[in-house]
């Protein structure tokens, strides 16, 4: 049985159908790429999954339970964590505290607890951020802020990560390093959906690629198959981006 499943997921904003009857599955241990031109509905899929947006139609299953109507914190407690497209660290707190927040128990009586300094160091080290723990988020270069977002997501001990454009704004070296890190996370047993607007970082990384256009799935297959797919080429031709 698959770990994660979308069944006819639909999200409407007024008259706009941002996600249109989308279905796909992700198996445990897989890395699935979700691509599509800008505005095709990728982030909306994640927002629906994370309980940020109310789903208009269809269902979302994770690890045997239906999570369609779960609230964000319940989705996270179930083992899903998302790295948003926009970084949103708490600028008043140093990197370490930003990570610690993601380890705190969801209990109003838990005055103490959460990760120890050593555990926070370990979360940061998994993504090469261990030297920046004392720094404030707004002192960090872009790539480190993105790493902080990933460290925070890892600190919730997820079974599955939803990564929204993790390579955006990074140079080739940084992209390669990040791809290696994601490979390591897969080795540790974390399942991933990686959103990107093109195939760049995904070619080597993804086991399978799902392509959406105007909210609907237009292709699904191995990276090689997708690179050759005519429908996908046409979808990208209409947009200003390269595949």
């Amino acid at each position: 049985m698959s770990l994660f499943r979308l069944d006819g997921l639909t999200k409407r904003f007024g008259g706009l159908v941002a996600v249109d009857d989308l279905s796909f599955e992700v198996d445990r241990g897989e890395i699935v790429g979700l691509i599509g031109p800008n505005g095709s509905g990728k982030s909306t899929v994640f927002n629906c999954t994370m309980g940020r947006y109310k789903v208009s139609d269809g269902s979302i299953h994770f690890d045997g339970s239906e999570i369609t109507d779960y609230r964000t914190h319940e989705v996270v407690e179930n083992g899903l964590s998302r790295v948003s497209q926009e970084s949103n660290p708490i600028t008043e707190m140093p990197v370490a505290a930003n990570i610690k927040l993601f380890t705190l128990p969801n209990s109003v009586l838990a005055f103490r607890g959460g990760a120890t300094d050593e555990e926070i160091y370990q979360y940061a080290a998994r993504i090469d951020l261990e030297d920046k723990l004392e720094e404030m988020p707004d002192e960090l270069p872009h790539a480190d802020i993105r790493r902080l977002e990933i460290a925070k997501a890892l600190a919730t001990e997820p079974e599955m990560l939803l990564l929204d454009e993790p390579f955006a704004g990074m140079n080739q070296q940084e992209i390669n390093d990040l791809v290696d890190k994601f490979e390591e996370l897969r080795e540790e047993g974390i399942t991933m959906i990686v959103v990107d607007h093109n195939m760049g970082g995904l070619m080597k990384l993804a086991d399978r690629i799902v392509v959406i256009h105007n909210g609907s799935k237009i292709a699904e297959g191995s990276p090689e198959e997708i690179a050759e797919n005519e429908a996908v080429k046409r979808a990208y031709l209409g947009s200003t981006e390269a595949m």
Partner: peptide, 29 residues
């Protein structure tokens, strides 16, 4: 209370409520 996890979560709610729910914390509660 203010120097505990609870105070930290309160401040985090003030600064960025979305981030707090992404941390698996029920902000309403």
């Amino acid at each position: 209370v203010a120097r505990s996890n609870v105070g930290m979560i309160f401040v985090a709610i003030r600064e960025n409520e979305t981030a707090v729910s992404a941390a698996g914390i029920d902000t309403t509660k």
